[in-house]
């Protein structure tokens, strides 16, 4: 190859290498910028709300005076709604996942269900709110209660639970199934006694991630018509007389953390901004805390099981 051609080639290589390095830098910058913006905003909010995060903030009801307002009814409401959501979404989602992964034959019904689950995952959350308003609140007469909110959020996270259940079942080697069948176990015995215990951890992780998504949901709950000013707690689920448990709290009106925060954000007085910042910080800690539990569980369980 002649000399000038070689220098041209070298120049070309160097130019391409330079562009390559520049792109790597840009890529790193994009990721760093996005996360840093988020961190900055979160820290700014935490600092603004810090003065408000005291024990009284967690033990007082909302109030017209910003200084005395707290999140007692909001966090209690969030916990109760999550309880209903978990009780509804886990059995339904896990059962659907098991059916689709282990039982479903290749026919149009299975296809229909699969396409449906994918589509439901893409439905905007506020549409679930409209469904709940029309169906749960009015047609079924459940009212604007904790039960309605919990069921709505359960429907919302159902696709997440179904998909993670399927993924975890897929990850179980088929040799385990074959061994169980060889010993004469039926299909359900195989699933219940062998497959589910092994996939329990990853299903649980998926469920927890689903719940962390449900905690932050505001739009569907607003649509149901959750009240923003609740200065009382629902009746305790434990009673003194027989049968010692009461489900009256399911019918109680309620508020949840994101609604309380939205209420404070949308007030014109600046004093409520601090309350909103404090509520937002608590909400972020709740979400991140739940996510951290999920990540920790996944890590622990991956360490324990080796195929």
């Amino acid at each position: 190859m002649s000399q000038p051609n070689l220098t041209k080639l070298r120049a070309n290589i160097n130019r391409r290498k330079l562009i390559n390095t520049m792109f790597a830098f840009v890529g790193l910058m994009v990721i760093a910028t996005a996360t840093i913006i988020l961190l900055t905003l979160t820290i700014k909010m935490a600092i603004q709300g810090a003065e408000k995060i005291t024990p009284e903030f967690f033990t007082s009801f909302p109030s017209r005076r910003a200084a005395r307002a707290g999140i007692l009814s909001a966090w209690v409401g969030t916990c109760l709604v999550m309880l209903v959501t978990a009780f509804a979404a886990i059995p339904l989602g896990v059962a659907s996942g098991i059916y689709l992964e282990e039982y479903a034959k290749k026919n149009w019904i299975a296809d229909l269900i699969e396409i449906n689950v994918t589509n439901l995952a893409g439905v905007p959350s506020i549409i679930y709110g409209l469904l709940a308003l029309g169906l749960f609140v009015y047609e079924l007469g459940l009212g604007q209660s904790i039960l309605t909110a919990g069921l709505t959020l359960a429907l919302l996270i159902l696709p997440v639970v179904i998909v993670t259940t399927r993924e975890s079942l897929k990850a179980i080697p088929s040799s385990l199934r074959e061994a169980a069948y060889a010993l004469g176990a039926s299909k359900w015995q195989t699933i219940w006694d062998h497959i589910l215990p092994y996939s329990f951890g990853s299903i649980l992780t998926g469920v927890i991630i689903g719940l962390s998504r449900a905690i932050g949901q505001t739009a569907p709950i607003i649509t149901i018509g959750a009240l923003t000013f609740i200065a009382f707690l629902p009746k305790s689920p434990f009673t003194e007389d027989f049968p010692f448990v009461s489900f009256e709290w399911l019918q109680a009106p309620f508020t949840v953390m994101p609604i309380q925060m939205f209420n404070w954000v949308s007030r014109p007085q600046a004093a409520f901004e601090i309350n909103a910042a404090a509520a937002g910080t608590v909400l972020i800690f709740m979400t991140l805390g739940i996510n951290a539990i999920a990540i920790f569980l996944r890590y622990q369980l991956r360490k324990g099981i080796k195929w």
């Binding site: 990721i31 996360t35 988020l38 909010m45 932050g216 505001t218 925060m261 954000v265 972020i284």
Partner: peptide
């Protein structure tokens, strides 16, 4: 490190994002 960090962006409740948009951005 970067993947979970990016996924945190999706984990933040949207009402908090609204707060960021209105009061900081």
């Amino acid at each position: 490190i970067a993947k979970p960090a990016l996924e945190l962006l999706a984990a933040i409740p949207t009402v908090v994002y609204g707060y960021f948009a209105l009061l900081y951005v």
